[in-house]
């Protein structure tokens, strides 16, 4: 019961804030609602017993990436953009296509329901000390992808510095 309350609360919070992210006019408010959506997702991770992922989501997404976003938003003055049109000229076409994609996804889940055990509740947690298991998987089986990811981060860091520097 408590499980369900937690899940539907966070799901509703995430969905509502996601809608507000794409509809608000003020970028700072968009960023705040994105933070709310990300934290709600973190709550859903916790409800799924993914504690480590929950904290990664809070530290990296909410605490790291979003601070970067807010920082950049404040560096760039936004008084002008408040009074400009918020949607591009072909927004109706984009909306239509996005809804088509969404309908496809719903169809996929609905069809998959008969093949995979989607309908039943997920089995009770089999991953008990989830942090240890994630660590072992990450540094055992997925060692090479992990190293590649660290190189990706290095490349991104150099790229961001070069890009944002005034004179190269």
């Amino acid at each position: 019961m408590l499980d369900q309350i937690v899940f539907y609360f966070f799901a509703a919070l995430a969905a509502i804030s996601a809608v507000l992210v794409v509809t608000r006019r003020n970028i700072v408010q968009c960023a705040i609602f994105l933070i709310t959506a990300l934290l709600a997702t973190a709550g859903i991770f916790l409800q799924l017993h993914a504690e480590f992922l929950f904290i990664v989501q809070v530290i990296l997404y909410a605490g790291g990436i979003m601070v970067l976003f807010v920082f950049v938003i404040m560096l760039i003055n936004l008084d002008i953009s408040l009074h400009q049109a918020q949607y591009n000229r072909q927004w109706w076409l984009g909306l239509l296509l996005a809804l088509v994609v969404g309908a496809h996804l719903i169809l996929a889940v609905a069809v998959g329901r008969s093949v995979l055990p989607f309908g039943e509740p997920a089995p009770a947690t089999m991953l008990e000390p989830s942090t240890q298991i994630v660590g072992r998987t990450l540094f055992g089986e997925y060692m090479l992808p992990f190293e590649i990811a660290s190189i990706l981060l290095l490349v991104a860091m150099i790229g961001a510095v070069v890009m944002a520097k005034k004179k190269v």
Binding site: I55, I59, G63, S130, T131
Partner: peptide
């Protein structure tokens, strides 16, 4: 919590 310290930091 089993992620206690990271939780505090985060």
């Amino acid at each position: 919590l089993n992620v206690g310290l990271l939780f505090i930091v985060g």
